[in-house]
Design a protein around this nucleic acid. Structure first.
Lengths: 155, 155
DNA sequence: TCTTGACCTCAAGTTTACTTGAGGAATTAT
DNA sequence: ATAATTCCTCAAGTAAACTTGAGGTCAAGA
C-alpha cells in the first residue's frame, strides 16, 4: 500500500474477496468509479471497500447489478456516505427482503401442509385453492402444482 | 382436446402458463418425457401438468433446472406419483427452504440493527463482527460490509 | 379439399454475471 | 538495472434459462 490512502485494484480485490476481473466488470457497470494514476492504473478509495461489499450483500438479497447500481447512485461520490445516506438505502432493502421472506415462508407453510396430507399427488390440499388460482396472473403456474378445477378426476 | 387423455404441447402450455418453447426446452433438459403421435407431434400425460408446475415452484425455491431434474428422476414415469413419492421430494424441499429462510432472516435482522445505528457508515455494529469475518471462506466479502480490523480509522 | 393454425427441427440470439486469454505497459523488488 | 509482478485494454468464452427465426409438416374445421 502506497503512502496515500488509495488502493490498487489488487488490494481492493484482497479486501473484498472479489476477483480483479470482477471489480473491472463492476466499474463498467457503474458500481465504482476509480480514478487513475499517472500511469493509467486504477486507484480506489477506501470507501470503495464498503461499496463493493454492499454490492455482494445486495446480490445475496436478490438484487440484480443494475438495481444495485441504481441504489448506489443515491450515495455520494468521493466522500464517505453519511448515516442518512445508508439508512435510506437500507430501508429499501428491508422492504424488499421482507417481501421475499414472506413469500418463501408462505410457500414453506403450504409445502408443510402437503407433506402431511400427501396432496401433491391427491386432490384436496392447501395448495389446491381456488383463491390462489383466481389471484394468479401472468408468469407462473395458473394452478399451483397442476391442479385445475377440471383436473380433479385426472391425476 | 382429443378423445384420449393426452395433451398437445399447446394445451400443456395453456395449463401450466409456460410457453411452448419453454416446454420443449424442459424436455431437452429431461424434465418431461412426452411420447409422440404417428405424425411426430408430442403428446403429454395429464400428470405432466403437475410435473411442470412442480418445476416452476421448485425454481422459485431456488433450485436450478438440473437439480430439479435430479429430484424428478425419483418420480415414476408413466404412472401418477404416489403420496410417498411426493413426500420424499417435499422433505428435501423443506430443508432447502428452511436454510434459505434462515439466511434471509439473519441478514434482515442484521440490517435492521444497522438502520437503527447508522453503522453502515460507522465502525461499531452488528455487521461488524470479528466472528463473522473469521468464519467466512471462499466466495463473498471477507469482512461483511467492508469493515476489516485495520479499516476502523478509515471510512 | 384446402386453408389456417398448431407443431416440428435446428441453429442462433438474449440476458446476467462474470472469466479467460492475448499482447503489452507500469510498478516493485532485488 | 533487470526481472518479476501487477496492471491495462479488448475480444471472446461460459453457464443458465430461455426465445426467436427459418423452413417445413401435421391436423382440424369450413
Amino acid at each position: 500500500m502506497k503512502a496515500n490512502d488509495l488502493l490498487t485494484i489488487g488490494e481492493l480485490a484482497d479486501r473484498t474477496g472479489l476477483s480483479v476481473s470482477a471489480i473491472r466488470f463492476y466499474e463498467e457497470k457503474g458500481l465504482v468509479h476509480p480514478s487513475r494514476n499517472p500511469g493509467g492504473q486504477r486507484r480506489f478509495l477506501r470507501a470503495d471497500i464498503r461499496r463493493l461489499s454492499f454490492v455482494l450483500v445486495a446480490q445475496e438479497f436478490g438484487f440484480s447489478i443494475s438495481e444495485i447500481a441504481t441504489q448506489l447512485e443515491r450515495l455520494p461520490e468521493g466522500r464517505a456516505p453519511t448515516k442518512a445516506d445508508w439508512t435510506r438505502i437500507s430501508r429499501d432493502f428491508r422492504s424488499h427482503l421482507d417481501k421475499r421472506i414472506e413469500r418463501m415462508t408462505a410457500l414453506r407453510d403450504k409445502l408443510d401442509a402437503c407433506i402431511g396430507c400427501g396432496c401433491l399427488s391427491m386432490q384436496v390440499c392447501q395448495l389446491y385453492n381456488a383463491g390462489d388460482a383466481a389471484s394468479r396472473h401472468g408468469r407462473g403456474p395458473r394452478y399451483l402444482l397442476g391442479n385445475s378445477p377440471d383436473d380433479v378426476e385426472a391425476v
